[in-house]
Amino acid sequence: MNAPTDTPKLHDCRDAFVETLEALAAEDETIVAVVNDSVGSSKLGGFRDKFPDRLVNVGIAEQNMVGVGAGLANGGMIPFVTGAAPFLTGRALEQIKADVAYSETNVKLVGISSGLAYGNLGATHHSIEDFAWIRALPNIVVVAPADRIETAAAVAWAAEYEGGVFLRLSRVGVPDLLPEGHVFVPGKANSLRDGSDVTLIANGVLSHRALAAAALLDTKGISARVLNMATVRPTDADAIISAANETGAIVTCEEHTIFGGLGSAVAEVVVQNAPVPMTVLGVPGEFAPTGSANFLLDHYGMSPEGIAASAEALITRKS
């Protein structure tokens, strides 16, 4: 992809996650981390060294990991159950359903290296179904932060919130998008740029790409609104309906299959409230080929140029 001209510094959101978690754990002795051997890839080595009694490593056993998280919550702890997103969500989905969602336990599920982050390790390691799987469950707030600032804010919010949360984090570097001191509000989208001809809705590692696409569209005289929609459930229906009514066209961009993710969540609101043309960008119905995460996002039409082209084509369908 073409980087923005001023080449901003990129950050790994895992760093913001562990820094925030360690700071919270220093203040609250009920905060624990539960891992499936993945201390290193979750970057929880520092947490383990500072709070050895509160790092619960169940070994390579994701079903048990989520069940143990629910039990820790029952016993008064605030567990951050952290593991590679594909295995945390796919392997332990029934535990997430029964022990977390249905039992309404105060469990924080943290999916690391989500989406296409594992890139060329292949489709077994891609987590591009997790929005759909977890969004189908009641009682779990699904959040994909866009940068280190939103990650830190979402982690702080999750620790305070009484209930189930799925935090979907990447390891792919992203620039800062939100202002320092940003306060995370679940179910509330943030406008990264206003516009009147089309709205680009994205989250996670796609938000900065959508913003870059809006800059490209601007050079062609197209005014694009950009919404960073970290929360996939509950969705920000007000922001979506306003976008539909005020810009008349919506492009969604996600590091996820186009079946059941952010685009689907937006479309559910659009078709029932303010039907306008939409394009849903994401991974089509296939397992992704070999390539880095950034290569694959470009490959699937989600470079800034690709997103801009989709928006330009969509606008011609406006009534």
């Binding site: 998280g69 629910a70 039990g71 029952n74 016993g75 249905y102």
Partner: peptide, 24 residues
Amino acid sequence: ETNTGPLGHGLPVAVGMAKAAKIS
């Protein structure tokens, strides 16, 4: 204490409970 039905769920949750008591 926890919603059961699908089998193989109660013991992992109980392990988490017992671990919580140990931690605290």
